[in-house]
Amino acid sequence: MWRPRLPLRHRMLLPLVGLLAAVLAWPALFALWVSLHDYRLTRLRDVRFVGLDHYRALLFDPVFLNAMANTLHFVLAAVALELLLGLGLALALHRLRTGRHLARALVLVPMFVTPIAVGLMFRFLLNPQLGVVPYLLGRLGITVDWFGPGLALWSLILIDVWQWTPFMVLMLLAGLEALPRAPFEAARVDGASPWRIFTRITLPLLRPVVLVALVIRGLDAFKVFEYVYAITRGGPGDSTETVQFLIYKVGFRFFRMGEASAMAWLLLLVTLALTVLLWHLLRRREA
């Protein structure tokens, strides 16, 4: 009997490859196939091949383009704010002498909370009638319609910042703590100002950590769904409709699986392109 003798290294990896192929690769390819068809759950007996029609239509579809623009806006603004705030907070926590561990543990809490709960919490806190925040601002004479037109997307960004700045803090703080001491001491001896030390030594040394954190967080932000689902459902108008939410709507409310799959693949391509771009931008400057 012929028995294939795979080396142990492959035998140990095989279950992972197999399972990922089953739950990820195969569905992804199936999605590609679906995206080339007019595939509706309501008309499963009538699935027709349409080639790239969905993709062609989507590229000029204002609804999809609007969702894509909202998503990009959301990702860029949220991640940039999170990086800046995270850096500031990480530096502050790094300097903190008393209560450091407790403070850090508490600051990190939001990132472990299920996003739907975060969304509902803020919907409750910011609600114009029920919410404590508008009430308190009202006492100060400020009225803000958090989820009104114009501001709703920014409110969602704010919520994302609340939840995910801790992730940046976690990564950057670890990066700060892992930095070698010698360059800082040398710079101090050389009489460099704190600002110079920060821009010339701290930031360059942190770059690898920043890179990993940005990639992880950026890709994750593209998946934004829960806040939209919990609070605005895309409104007012379509001002907070993100791609993920649109796909959900088209695929599982209207059952137009073909178009939903095409959107998903376009989203995948966009995120991939942005990741590669970011990676190269930050890698290049490292040299």
């Binding site: 195969w26 999605a31 994750d220 593209f222 998946k223 791609v243 799959s261 998903a264 989203l267 995120t271």
Partner: peptide, 10 residues
């Protein structure tokens, strides 16, 4: 990092 949207339909 695969967007869930890609996998969810299939």
């Amino acid at each position: 990092m695969m967007p869930p949207a890609v996998v969810i339909v299939p």
